[in-house]
Design a binder for these strands. Structure first.
Length: 873
RNA sequence: GCCGGGGUGGCGAAAUCGGUAGACGCAGCGGAUUCAAAAUCCGCCGCUGGCGACAGCGUGAGGGUUCGAGUCCCUCUCCCGGCACCA
């Protein structure tokens, strides 16, 4: 055994051992409980970034510990390989997306292996291979025939110069990122998945996911946004609209219906279009609304504007005529694309009415914050429920009663009824892009829209394609889109849109159960492994990816493909990796970001950072604050360089130690040094005690029954206290304190007194065996090497997880804090089992009591067992 | 704008059910070792006042509940994530 800690040597050896033993290959096993631990698969962007390393380290720690607790662990890995970056790289470097993607996968796979993750590589999959996406296409055709996928118009960002559809992130300040042209909304035909058909189930099932973070469930609940309300119909005024019909709106506040003073419709609404034809002012406004992109964050922060039309609708109860406005804050995609406006009781309507001097009619009186009339400025009480006023026959009803009464009356008139509305919209999956899974549809003039027959699947994406950034490449490839109709055999045209890449990531976790099956999407093995027992990934996926996956699993369940409803039993959302940023301001205000590795920081005598300079020229740079590691801020740390310099174990230990998994992790080079220092100490200790441990293995088992000298009993107590704590923290997924526990154990056994040599050896051998096993999930290589050198049995991968000994934890005397009037004033030593009355006596007799009670009698004594005594006087 | 989360020493953090605030580590300071340095080891390390014993203050800000609040309640503030075509 080498004296010096040489991570590159021991890590290579451990990894070779695992490879030759096929240690992580896993098959179904009826004798052991299965444990499916999954980390979100990476997009193969080129090389691993620190966020990946964090994600997969957390997953690996969980996997390895589950294995030590006797589970049959599956930890697979694959590649979320379709997506825009491959097209961007193709445009930039003239490399076909497929070639770029496969080269990246190859490199990143090597990096994952070097980090020592316990992955079953026999299950590897890449979503850009026909072997994978053919099943996605197969399922598409089934869901299409079932009606769960349908086609309609959808709004997209259109770049009129590049004649291409842009993603929201490609629209910067309302302009196309490449062309700089002003982006506009355009409606094009798209396929939609009917996720709303599952809205109720997706919502209520959240209550049965106790091991999901409450915050994620809450975000999903709000996203689905179930609301109970009333659909109200406002009949068209024949004289102004010129035809009969009704304007439908949905409202949760039907109690305020009598306060509606106008209605507002979206620019895309049929009434807006009709008004625009006759009125140039309306036409101009509607045209204006087409400008800009479709991102909701932009629409919601826009100034609320509108224009009056000459159209009127009839109030369904009062019969009054209400003007129709077109407003940019009404979204066509939500509800009916129209709202009834009650300025007195809705803040947005209030602001709009105030701006355009529309009437405000108060119809609800708040029950606790009384106001006589609604006037500016807006106060929150206006929006409260209360008692209805100024509403004729409904006066005096409570808001909830008024909703019922109004709904009943509307129903009698056939002008409305109660209904449930969801905020959730159907999932548009069509993308006018090349590097994605082709949508398996054929268009025939005679037969219409035809799904591609099973026998003709997969529709293979051609891989040698020139990507230009203008238009859609597949739409320029007759060899791709020319085909024959499966119905009549006449020439037909193939769909050239591809699918949203969220589709691939909505079922990959099921395919891992049986990636080798060439004749079915999934087989019986899926119900052995599914659902995933522990899913680990970034909080940024809290809504979309996780919701789509929950929907897809149910859609597949209803196709008889799996019996699971929920894909992920437990979820751990990890925080971002952030680092300090530094920059210099260039002429014109542009910032030149400088990598932290190239910066020297100056500190004052207390260690506070006061200034920073560029190491190369010694000149000052500006400290820009802590931000998410990114290319754009140039504050990334390359995992490869880290592993080359310190080894995988140091990288893993630091990442686990620096912060709890769900919080953001602040990068620190000196923190990495600290982790390395600790592992060197572990190695040095192992080297020193390897022989001793081997000789004392037999004595470890009898430690519980052995009388130890108190200092050694204290060491042993500390070791087992740390172990018990580590167990508890593991259960909470608070791995940073598990890492702390390993440091505390080493501190304890290093300081163990040696005067009783035989007892010392036994306590240290036990302590070190516990240390290595607690460390094994975090730093598996060093644990593997030392476990062998110290003569412990078997492979540490399968060593049983240690159990804290109650005998070792037992204490005869304990210390209790003494508080006087809630302030800490001293402490007393008492027998651990001292009765409460005697504890009170001891506390009252303590120095602290004598000094701080000022001779006053104790009015009350509170004893918190094992912790403290508080004397109130 | 809407939804969700966070704020504790110079820094990362810990504190399990409302019960010793700051475990563990980083940085810093002092010392040992060394020709010297690195590495290693030992000690100190929330802030303010005091030679000291010690005292007061202290978990983003303000208020409340309680014998006792980082933890519970209300108001405010700053930072971060998501917002449906980045993944």
């Amino acid at each position: 055994m080498q004296e010096k800690y040489a991570p590159q040597v021991i890590e290579t050896a451990a990894q070779e051992h695992w490879t030759s033993q096929q240690s992580f290959r896993v098959v179904e096993d009826a004798d052991r409980p299965k444990y499916y631990c999954l980390s979100m698969f990476p997009y193969p962007s080129g090389k691993l970034h620190m966020g990946h390393v964090r994600n997969y380290t957390i997953g690996d720690v969980i996997s390895r510990q589950a294995r030590m607790r006797g589970h049959n662990v599956m930890q697979p890995m694959g590649w979320d390989a379709f997506g825009m970056p491959a097209e961007n790289a193709a445009i930039q470097n003239n490399v076909p997306p497929a070639q770029w993607t496969y080269a990246n996968i190859d490199y990143m796979k090597g990096q994952l292996k070097r980090l020592g993750f316990g992955i079953d590589w026999s299950r590897e999959l890449a979503t850009c291979t026909p072997e994978y996406y053919r099943w996605e296409q197969w399922l598409f055709t089934r869901l299409y025939r079932k009606g769960l996928i349908y086609k309609r118009l959808g709004s997209v960002n259109w770049d009129p110069v590049d004649e291409t559809v842009l993603a929201n992130e490609q629209v910067i300040d309302g302009r196309g990122w490449r062309s700089g042209a002003l982006v506009e909304k355009r409606d094009i035909p798209m396929y939609y998945m009917k996720i709303t058909a599952y809205a109720d189930e997706l919502l209520s099932a959240l209550d049965d996911l106790p091991d999901w973070p409450e915050q994620v469930k809450q975000m999903q609940r709000n996203w689905i946004g179930r609301s109970e309300g009333v659909e109200v119909q406002f009949p068209y005024d024949l004289t102004t609209v010129g035809k009969s019909g009704v304007l439908k709106v949905f409202t949760t506040r039907a109690d305020t219906l009598m306060g509606a003073t106008y209605v507002a419709v979206a620019a895309e609404h049929p009434l807006a279009r009709q008004a625009a034809e006759a009125d140039p002012e309306v036409a101009a406004f509607v045209d204006d609304c087409v400008k800009g992109g479709v991102a909701e964050a932009d629409l919601a922060t826009m100034e609320k504007k509108g224009v009056a039309t000459r159209l009127r609708v009839v109030h369904p109860i009062s019969g009054e005529y209400l003007p129709v406005w077109v407003a940019n804050y009404v979204l066509m995609g939500y509800g009916e694309g129209a709202v009834m406006a009650v300025p007195a009781h809705d803040e947005r309507d209030f602001a709009f009415a105030t701006r355009y001097r529309l009437p405000i009619k108060m119809v609800v009186a708040s029950t606790h914050d009384s106001y006589a009339e609604v006037t500016a400025p807006w106060i929150d009480a206006y929006a409260e429920h209360g008692r209805v006023v100024n509403s004729g026959k409904y006066d005096g009803l409570r808001s909830s009663e008024a909703v019922d009464a109004i709904a009943t009356d509307l129903e009698a008139k056939h002008l409305g009824q109660k209904r449930v509305q969801f905020r959730l919209r159907d999932w548009g999956i069509s993308r006018q892009r090349y590097w994605g899974c082709p949508i398996p549809m054929i268009y025939c003039e005679a037969c219409g829209d035809m799904p591609v027959p099973d026998a003709q699947l997969p529709v293979v994406l051609p891989e040698d394609v020139a990507v230009t950034g203008r238009g859609s490449p597949l739409a320029r490839m007759p060899e791709f889109y020319e085909c024959t109709c499966p119905g009549c055999g006449k020439p037909a045209r193939r769909e050239t849109d591809t699918m949203d890449t969220f589709v691939e990531s909505s079922w990959y976790f099921l395919r891992y159960a049986c990636p080798d099956n060439t004749s079915a999407m999934v087989d019986g093995r899926v119900d052995h492994w599914a659902p995933v027992d522990q899913y680990v990934g970034g909080i940024e996926h809290a809504i979309l990816h996780l919701l789509y996956s929950r929907f897809f699993t149910r859609a597949m369940r209803d196709e008889g493909l799996t019996s699971a409803s929920e894909p992920f039993t437990a979820l751990l959302t990890q925080g971002m990796v952030v680092a300090e940023t530094y920059y210099r301001e260039l002429e014109g205000g542009k910032k030149q970001w400088i990598n932290p590795a190239d910066v020297t920081v100056e500190r004052d005598d207390k260690g506070r950072i006061v200034a920073a300079t560029l190491t190369a020229d010694g000149q000052a740079v500006t400290i820009g604050g802590t931000e998410k590691m990114s290319k754009s801020k140039n504050n990334g740390v390359d995992p490869q360089a880290l592993v080359d310099a310190y080894g995988a174990d140091t990288a893993r230990f630091f990442i686990i130690f620096a912060a709890p998994p769900d919080q953001q992790l602040e990068w620190s080079d000196s923190g990495v040094e600290g982790a390395y220092r600790f592992l060197r100490r572990v190695w040095a200790f192992g080297h020193r005690f390897a022989g001793e441990c081997r000789d004392s293995l037999g004595a470890v088992a009898s430690l519980d029954g052995r009388e130890l000298p108190e200092p050694l009993a204290a060491v042993r107590r500390e070791v087992h206290t740390c172990l018990k704590q580590a167990d508890y923290d593991f259960g909470k997924h608070q791995f940073n304190t598990v890492a702390s526990a390993t440091m505390k154990i080493l501190n304890a056994i290093e300081k163990a007194p040696t005067d009783d040599a035989s007892a010392h050896e036994a306590v240290v051998a036990e302590g070190f065996s516990i240390l290595l096993r607690v460390l094994a999930p975090i730093t598996p290589h060093i644990a593997h090497a030392l476990w062998q050198s110290c003569g412990f049995t078997g492979d540490i991968l399968d060593a049983p997880w240690p159990q804290a000994s109650e005998a070792a934890l037992k204490q005869d005397r304990i210390e209790l804090m003494v508080q006087i009037n809630g302030k800490l004033r001293g402490a007393i030593q008492v027998a651990a089992d001292l009765p409460r009355a005697d504890i009170e006596k001891a506390a009252l007799a303590s120095d602290a009591a004598a000094k701080f009670m000022d001779g006053k009698p104790a009015r009350k004594v509170i004893v918190v067992p094992g912790r403290l005594v508080n004397i109130v006087c």
